[in-house]
Structures are given as structure tokens and as C-alpha cells.
Design a protein around this nucleic acid. Structure first.
Lengths: 343, 343
DNA sequence: TTGTACGCGTTATCAT
DNA sequence: ATGATAACGCGTACAA
């Protein structure tokens, strides 16, 4: 606070006692008499005293706050995850500082540094599409700053990870399309460097393999900017539809890509035969689209919760943690019209 | 940073000079010799020195950061506004701390206090639906903390406001429905205490009046929780549809209400005749819905930008500001299928 | 040009 | 049971 904030000094002066006594009374120390405590508390209440967390941070080298790095809060998956993060953090007395990278590596570096220098006690990170180097995180992690990755993780830094079961979710979605009778299933996905991209691609391949459908590389399109540029996806769709062997279904691998792709397909629809469609997205609007949207939904809120619990356990650990968990939560396939094959 | 962070002390020791010299050299003070500066800068670089903003905040009583209070980041209007806020803030060297109230008054009080005690230099606030008292803000504002309201504003505290032209936007939307031939236009809106609710209701009334349609109070439904509870809206829709004189169109007044209402209507559709529909929302999915959605879109990004510029002007003002602006930005009516009357 | 000393608000240590 | 003091990292008035 910038202006005439009430401090323990004011209380001390008011009561004619020392600041240390006030401090101890406020912290309910055993060495302060009951009546002094009562006096101090009453006075603090009266003056509307609020401890200054800045000063506390400086003194205690911790801030009771955690930093969050995501690509976009406008993304449903992340806004839901953030709600999960906040629910746990608040209940444990921690505050949450949210930052966005907009899929930019440079922004990620800036955000991480800013959070660290703001004395956050730990970091929850979902890597950006543009991140090709982890030095900015490793550096802090090596110094002892607790870090937990969620959603877009890395094996290069040894710590807790929390992710959806991307492989299985992808497998089920692809298999669902296969069961519907689609033969040429295209896959439009995020930047190839991301963990989610690799895992989802593998799930897709597994399903094809199980059903003896040959994998065709031409049916896989990467969006290096994670769909931040819509024409990136439009281009992918157009390329797919101009192939000799046109796809009869599309499986998309991330929130932004799914929506943008849906739009691209819809705009081309008039000239198009039926095209099966499903994708990873946490939108709550799937039932309102036309056609209603078959989606793979991630347990975003729970992912946020679990990641935060793990981070707090690191922060509050007495001794260095060696044993890291890699938590995997199941996705949910919600079947609606878009994936159903017209008969 | 918690661990072994490099401080000016380390640099001072390394070079055998005093901390104040280091401090001044780093701030490029005119009283430090060029060579000492070079030495210090080089050493700072080498040790990867980063100033501790916590200590700076404590010292300078300012943090170069601003706090944002919104109801929900998952709301498209707010996530877009936040992007506008960040774009200005970052370019001016300020950091942004985002908090959500989830339309709860208690949460708003907690968030505002937390931000203030975290030494933010100013506050950007959009009031929650549940807010019935402004003491928590007035108290800080009276102490001199710069505050700018946006979207959901109040006249009770004299400062800059930034809003969409809610009256006119609402007027145009309603008139559009009237031109389409709808006679009984219902209005489902947010909590009655909010500025946006009042302004949008007035716009609706104006349009009715202009076209000599009597205002019918029964056609107006308030959602006191701003649609945080979906059954609130379902209930409103059901009540409307069980009126003797059923509405033939619905005009909704906020993002959440619009979507939830659309869903409720869609679920009832089978038993329903055609129902015209439009509403305030900044969703980017309006073209994907079925029917495609006629919307009133607010210039959310610009609202965020303008609000931030005004806040920074307050923060950096040399003398107390007396002259406050009430900035109003135009909305945009995007006409799609949902409001078109079947003929 | 550089150094010394103090204060920002808090807590911990050591006296008393 | 309470008080005096130092320290967290930084910036600055004052001294040299």
C-alpha cells in the first residue's frame, strides 16, 4: 500500500509498547500475556491494521504466492485449469499470479523471470508452442525454485508433471471415427515440439495401427503457432482437401485448432461432401454448435488442482524432493453429431 | 527469488566498493564515474544480477504493477479486455496481476485488499454482480490509490470510467428485433444493481418507446448471480414461456446470460415456435452456433487499452487529478440468423 | 566522485 | 513478559 498504511509501529505508539511486542501479539506468541494480546488485537482491529506482505516477503524470503504461466487465458482449457489452481491455492493461503505467453517463447522468458523476481514460491507452467529452449526455467529450478509442469510438459527438467491421458484420449477419438466408418482420417495438430502434440499423434497412430489402417504422413498437419494465426489452420484444411485421396474425417489436437478448423470446414462446407469431425477442446459450447460437436474433454479443473497440490507439497517440503510423480488424468469423449457418419 | 540471489552487496564486495556506489551506478547516476559504471555493469552482467522488486517496492512504495479485478476470465469479454490491458501495461513497463471474483462480493473485497497490500500502483475494476457496497474500494481510493472502473462502473466513486455504449447498443439490438417484426421482446439481464444492467435496460426501453410498443415489466427477468448458476437462466426462460402473452423474441444483456439462455431455448425448441434471439456477448463462436448468433459485440480490447491508459495517467500524474473522463466506446451489432424472422 | 547511515515494515535473536 | 536491535535488499540524504 502506498499511502499512510497502518503498521505495527502505529499500534506500538498508540499503546506505548514496542513493535516486537506488537508483532508477537499479532502472531499469537506464547510469550505474550493474554491481556496485552487482547489490547493489541483490539487496537489492530480499530486501526484496521493489515500486515504488509511486501515487507513480510522481504523478511521471510517467501511470498505465499505462486506464479502461473499459460499460453492463453481465453482458452477454455486454461481458464478452467486456473480455476482449479485458485481453488487449491486460496484454500491453502496462497495467492495466484497469472501470466500469458500467447505462444511466444520470448514472452515466456519474460514472464518466468518476472514471476521469479517477484518472489513467487513456486511456478506452474504449461509451455508455449514457441518454446525451443528451457534454460530460463532450468536456471531457476536448479537454484531450488519449485516448478510443476502441467499440460505441456517436458522430460528435460526433473519434476512433477500433470497431464491428461493424451495418448488414450487420442486413441479413443480416432477409434471412434474408425468405428463410424471413416477411412481417411486427417490429423491437424499443434507445434511438433510440444509434449501434447507427440502424445496425441501417437494415440492417433496406435488406433490406426490397431485397425490396420496405414499411417499416411500427408494427412498430418502441424500448426507451429498453435493456431494463434487462423490462416495457419485454414491453409492446413485447404491442403488436406486438395489431396488426391481426400480425408473423410478430421481429428484436431487442441482447443484453438479445433475451433478454427471447425470454422474453416464450415466455410467450405457447401462445396464439400460430409466430413467427420472431432477434436480436443474444453469449450462448453459444443452442444450449441452446428453440427453439435464431438469432443475430447480434458479434466482441466482437476489438472489445475493436482498440479497445485504437488507444487505446494514441493514448496512446503522440509527436504529436497527426489521422487517425482507423473500424474495422468483420464479424458472424456463426448459424442455428438459432428463425428457421426451419415448413412 | 528465494535462493542465493545476487544482490548489490555481492557486487560491492566483488569490486571492493560500497553498495551505494553500486546502486547509483546501476541507476546510471550522473555522480558516478564512467569507469566505475562500466565496472559495475560488467560485474552485474557477469553475476547475472537482477534487482529485487520486493525490496524496491518496500523502499519506493510502488511496484510498477497494476491490479485487475474481473468477474471471470473465462468470459470472452474479460479475456479480451485483459489482453488490451496487458498490451498497454507491458509497453509502459508495468506488470499486470489478474484476479477473479466469480461475481462474489466477498471475493471482490478479498481481492481488492490483497492487491492493495501487494502494493499495486493502481486498480482496474469491473464490479461483481454481488457487490452491494463500495466501502472496500472507496477506502483505498480516498487514501489516494488510483482506480479506474471499466464495464461495470459506479457513480459513487469519482474517477475515470470506461464503458461500451450500452444504451445505444441495446437500443440498436432491440430496434433490430422490432424491424424484424417481433412484437413481444423479452429481456433477460444481469443483477439489477450493475451499471450495465441499468443502461442496457434503458436502451431496450427507448427502442420500445420509439416504436410505440408498451413496456411490459413481466418480460424483464433479472439474473442476480449474473448467470453463474445456469438454472437461474433456465428458470427465467421457462417463466417467460409460460406467460399468457408469450414473447416472440429474447434479448439478453450479458455474455454468460446470452449463452446459457441460448442453451435453454435450444433445449426447449422442439416444443417451441420460432423465437428471435440476440444478446450481448463477445464470443468468437457466434458464426458456429445453430442458428448462427446475432450479437452485440463490445470493443473489449479497446476498453482494456483505454482504461489502462487512463489508469497510468493517474498513477503518473504529478498532482491530484480532478477532471475525470467517462469514456464511451461504440458497440457493434453483428446480424446473423438467430434474429431473422422466418417468413 | 564515493562512502556512511538510515529507513521502508516485518520478524528473529538476544537481552532484560 | 517485554524491549532493543539487527537484518531482509534497496535507494538516497548527507558527509567526506
Amino acid at each position: 500500500m502506498r499511502f499512510e498504511a497502518v503498521t505495527i509501529k502505529d499500534i506500538a505508539k498508540e499503546l506505548g509498547i514496542s513493535t516486537s511486542t506488537v508483532s508477537r501479539a499479532l502472531r499469537d506468541s506464547y510469550e505474550i500475556s493474554a491481556e496485552t494480546k487482547k489490547l493489541v488485537l483490539e487496537c489492530a482491529e480499530r486501526l484496521d491494521y493489515r500486515p504488509n506482505p511486501i515487507a513480510q516477503s522481504l523478511k521471510e524470503r517467501r511470498s505465499k504466492s505462486i506464479g502461473v504461466v499459460v499460453s492463453e487465458i481465453a482458452n477454455n482449457f486454461f481458464s478452467q485449469a486456473i480455476n482449479g489452481i485458485e481453488s487449491i491455492a486460496y484454500s491453502r493461503g496462497y495467492n495466484v499470479i497469472i501470466t500469458q505467453t500467447h505462444e511466444s517463447y520470448e514472452r515466456e522468458v519474460v514472464n518466468v523471470h518476472h514471476l521469479a523476481s517477484r518472489s513467487v514460491d513456486g511456478l506452474l507452467i504449461s509451455l508455449s508452442s514457441g518454446t525451443h529452449d528451457l534454460e530460463h526455467i532450468r536456471e531457476l529450478h536448479d537454484k531450488g525454485l519449485p516448478v510443476v509442469f502441467f499440460d505441456r510438459v517436458t522430460s528435460e527438467i526433473k519434476t512433477h508433471n500433470v497431464v491428461a491421458n493424451n495418448h488414450l484420449g487420442s486413441f479413443h477419438a480416432t477409434e471412434h471415427l474408425i468405428y463410424q466408418g471413416y477411412k481417411q482420417i486427417a490429423h491437424i495438430t499443434n507445434a511438433p515440439e510440444l509434449s501434447i502434440t507427440k502424445e496425441r499423434l501417437e494415440g492417433y497412430k496406435s488406433a490406426l495401427e490397431k485397425h490396420a489402417i496405414p499411417f499416411n504422413e500427408k494427412l498430418v498437419k502441424y500448426c507451429h503457432h498453435g493456431g494463434m494465426k487462423e490462416d495457419e489452420i485454414e491453409k492446413a484444411v485447404k491442403e488436406l482437401l486438395s489431396l488426391k485421396t481426400k480425408p473423410d474425417a478430421i481429428f484436431t489436437a487442441s482447443d484453438r485448432v479445433t475451433i478454427a478448423c471447425l470454422r474453416a470446414v464450415k466455410n467450405l462446407k457447401k462445396k464439400m461432401p460430409h466430413l467427420g469431425f472431432t477434436g480436443f477442446t474444453n469449450t462448453t459450447f459444443g452442444d450449441l454448435f452446428s453440427p453439435t460437436l464431438t469432443v475430447i474433454r480434458q479434466p482441466a479443473f482437476e489438472i489445475g488442482e493436482v498440479a497445485t497440490e504437488l507444487l505446494l507439497s514441493l514448496i512446503e517440503a522440509k527436504r529436497p524432493v527426489q521422487d517425482f510423480t507423473n500424474k495422468v488424468l483420464d479424458t472424456e469423449l463426448i459424442i455428438r453429431e459432428s463425428s457421426i457418419k451419415a448413412t
